[in-house]
C-alpha cells in the first residue's frame, strides 16, 4: 500500500473553513440562536459538532462564537474571570488562527466576550455579545432526572420543584446556599440555568443591554437572553435573593464592589482576596488604586509593580 501525501502549497486552500466550522454548521447554529433569542430562556436543541477540544471545556461556547464571529469582531475570552488562564488563552489563540480575529483583554473594547464562570465587572454595553460556556443547561436536572418530564415542566411552567430545592436549603442552613448556577426566571416565563457564574453576577443579567447567548456543547442545547430582558433570581417573599459580600477589599486594587477570589498564600493560614476579573483589577491599578497587599505581591513577582 502506498500513501500519497501532499503538502499544500502557497496557493492551496486553507485546511479549515473560516472560523473552523463549515458554513452549513454555522447556519444551523445561527438558526438555533435566532430561535433562542425569540423565546428567551428556552433551550433549543442543536447538532453540536466535534471540536478540537474535549467536551466540557467550552465546546458549546466556541461553536456559538464561531457561528457569530466576523473579521471585524474583537474577541475577549475569560475563564473564571481571568484573561490569562490556560483555557482562555487557548480559545483566544484558536480564533486568532482560524478566524483572523482581533483579540483583546479590555471588556469595553470587545464585541464578543466568551466566558466561563464570570460576567466582567465593567458594565456591558449595547452591541456587545456575551457567550457563556454551559456544562448543564437544564436547571431542573438534579431534581428530575427524566428529560421527558423536565420538558413538560418547562412547557407548562411547572416550577414548584425548583422552589422545593430552595426551601430545603433554607430549612437546613437558614439561607439559600446555592452560590453559583443560581436558577433564574427569564422574562417571567422560563426558568434557566445561568451557567456556573456566581450568584454575584446574576443581577448583571437583568435588563442587560448586551445580547447573552448560552451554549452547551455536550448537552447540545443553545439558549439566550436578548438585550433588555428581565432576569429574576428565584427566591421566597420572606427570604429575598442576596448576593455574596466580603468583609475586606481586593488585596491588589482595593475594590470593594467586585467579586473576590480567595487565594491561600502559605500553610500558616494566610490568605488574600483578589478580584476574579483580572482585567478589571489591572485597570484599577493603572488608575492608581492600591490594595493593602500590592507591595507584598510585587516583591513575590505576582504583579508588575513598575506597571502599576
Amino acid at each position: 500500500m502506498t500513501i500519497h501525501q501532499s503538502i499544500p502549497g502557497e496557493d492551496a486552500k486553507p485546511a479549515y473553513n473560516y472560523a473552523y466550522l463549515d458554513e452549513q454548521t454555522k447556519r444551523m447554529i445561527r438558526r438555533a440562536l435566532l430561535k433562542a433569542v425569540a423565546v428567551p430562556g428556552y433551550q433549543v436543541p442543536f447538532g453540536s459538532r466535534e471540536m478540537p477540544l474535549a467536551r466540557g471545556w467550552g465546546t458549546g461556547g466556541i461553536q456559538i462564537t464561531a457561528a457569530i464571529i466576523g473579521p471585524d469582531d474583537k474577541l475577549k475570552v475569560i475563564d473564571q474571570g481571568a484573561d490569562d488562564t490556560t483555557n482562555a488563552v487557548s480559545i483566544r489563540r484558536f480564533f486568532e488562527r482560524t478566524a483572523d480575529a482581533t483579540t483583546t483583554e479590555a471588556t469595553e473594547e470587545a464585541t464578543i466576550i466568551q466566558t466561563r464562570h464570570r460576567i466582567p465587572e465593567a458594565p456591558l454595553t449595547t452591541g456587545q455579545i456575551m457567550v457563556y460556556q454551559v456544562p448543564q443547561p437544564e436547571p431542573l436536572r438534579k431534581l428530575e432526572p427524566r428529560e421527558l418530564e423536565t420538558r413538560k415542566m418547562h412547557a407548562w411552567a411547572e416550577y414548584g420543584l425548583m422552589q422545593v430545592k430552595l426551601y430545603e436549603n433554607i430549612a437546613r442552613f437558614g439561607e439559600v446556599t446555592t452560590t453559583y448556577d443560581y436558577p433564574v426566571s427569564v422574562n417571567g416565563r422560563y426558568v434557566m440555568a445561568p451557567s456556573p457564574i456566581p450568584k454575584f453576577d446574576n443581577p448583571k443579567m437583568h435588563m442587560s443591554p448586551a445580547l447573552q447567548l448560552f451554549g452547551a456543547g455536550r448537552e447540545k442545547r443553545i439558549y439566550a437572553v436578548p438585550p433588555h430582558t428581565s432576569v429574576k433570581s428565584l427566591d421566597f417573599d420572606d427570604h429575598p435573593f442576596r448576593i455574596q459580600s466580603w468583609t475586606e477589599p481586593c488585596g491588589l486594587c482595593g475594590a470593594k464592589d467586585s467579586y473576590l477570589d480567595e487565594v491561600v498564600l502559605d500553610d500558616l493560614g494566610n490568605r488574600m482576596f483578589v478580584c476574579s476579573d483580572s482585567h478589571h483589577c489591572e485597570t484599577r491599578r493603572d488608575q492608581g488604586h492600591r490594595g493593602p497587599m500590592l507591595g507584598d505581591a510585587s516583591t513575590l513577582h505576582l504583579v508588575d509593580e513598575a506597571k502599576s
Partner: peptide, 13 residues
C-alpha cells in the same frame, strides 16, 4: 410544602 409551591406559594414562613 411541595404541592403548595407547585400551586404558587412563595412565602417560606
Amino acid at each position: 410544602g411541595e404541592r403548595l409551591m407547585d400551586n404558587g406559594a412563595r412565602h417560606y414562613g
